[in-house]
Design a binder for these strands. Sequence first.
RNA 1: GGCCCCAUCGUCUAGCGGUUAGGACAUCGGCCUCUCACGCCGGUAACCGGGGUUCGAGUCCCCGUGGGGUCGCCA
Length: 481
Amino acid sequence: MTAERVRFAPSPTGYLHIGGVRTALYNWLWARQTKGTFILRIEDTDTERSTAESTQVILDAMKWLDLDWDEGPGVGGPNGPYFQTERVEIYKEFADRMIERGTAYRCYATKEELDAERERQTKAGNPFFRYPGTWRDKGPKDWPTDGRPYVVRLKSPKSGSTGWVDLVKGRIDVPNEQQQDVVLIRSNGIPLYNFGAAIDDITMGVTLVARGDDHVVNTPVQILIYEALGKTPPKLAHLPMINGPDGKKLSKRNAAVSVAEYRDMGFLPDAVLNYLARLGWSHGDQEIFTRGEMIQHFDWSHVGRTAAQYDLKKFQFVQSSHLRAVDEAKLAELARPYLKAGATIDSEARLHAAIGTVKTRATTLLDVGEMVDFYFRDTLSFDEKAVAKFLVPAAASLLGDFRAHLAAQPAFDRASLEAATTAWLTERGLQIKDVAQAARVSLTGKSQSPGLYEVLEVLGRERALARLEAGAHKASQAAST
RNA sequence: GGCCCCAUCGUCUAGCGGUUAGGACAUCGGCCUCUCACGCCGGUAACCGGGGUUCGAGUCCCCGUGGGGUCGCCA
């Protein structure tokens, strides 16, 4: 397997979209599997919309996901700079070379002239503008000498076709008469997408380009640029789109699209990657993958050709599966930022134990923070419905008695507590369900919680007994009202 | 409209000429059970339509239909 040079080339015009993450992931997986190079390149040629803040947001997201890049912002590399706006001299050089070779030309048509032409064509019944080719066959002798600005256009062939074998879609061919003489370099010297991408991929030695389906139409143009420069195009792979849960285009209207949102919700980076990996790619029947497994098994031949629909339920399933696989100590570390304000973590060991009791019940780290909260409160907050239902007068004496029995126990671990409780129940001719809910509400404030004995154990003798006593009191109070 | 792409359960998908069309999420039953989860067992549920090719098509070809992408000095 030859080491591939791949890249992820986002535009810093907003947040990092989960569709973009999947593109980044597939590239990254391939680089890692082939022991190749993952390049991060910032395509900031849209100076109107690009911002330094967005660049930072994207970098932060990539770091959070731990999709580390071998060349790019921060780490540098031999093919820099990695911001396109810092590479304008390179583009100019290649553009001039193309003009000399006759595969590109200067176009002095102004924006105004073009707009007028666009309007004329629209009125003539053609809403799809085509550049009339005014400057296509002109040369240096025709160039104005007054220093007027010009754009550089690709002189694309009028006949034949341009195609490639796409790694996911197979053979694709597009008739050249479809091509426009697209603008390569703006009048201000900054390149347009197709040119910047092609030149960078050439100069950075990219061997495989994997990007979204929406770039299929750009590919012939880029291949034409490669050919105009006498270069061999890289391998190409176009990934199907990800649609929203409603089947429409994925947007913030129908889903959380920014990776930062998943981080804030307490999703695990590996879970996000796992879900996205499986959205459009498969490896037999396997659904849950570790990072290493993804690197090991990823392949282009099993990337699907059909657009996928985003499904939060499945995403949550993948997330909870990953959450359960993390050990308590690590989970404590990860969940710390998600613990609720006011929670007093008196002991790391207790936090680990507490997390152990909620692990299978939580989906996100945010859930962990909420579910574990009752263990670390001096004053418990109660769910009123649960109180009204279970802390009733009839439960008062039972709770008091139960508390007294537990207080007399020398050991306070879950096994001993269960044994002691069973003995007590037998003695009183009761069943566990007769006291469980009242005890649960007393201890946790809620009607749903981890198992009683583990809750008692993790709470610890002192706090557990105090809560049972308070619960019994609360229940008896209910009697007097 | 031109060009390009796509089409298996509600969803993600397996399938690469011969399968009782498999798995997962969701959903519906049941088991477990101190609640909620986890786990386990089981059910409902799919090859867009029409022509071909073939002894035999979900798998190959064509047409239709339906989705999607794109036609900027955006990326």
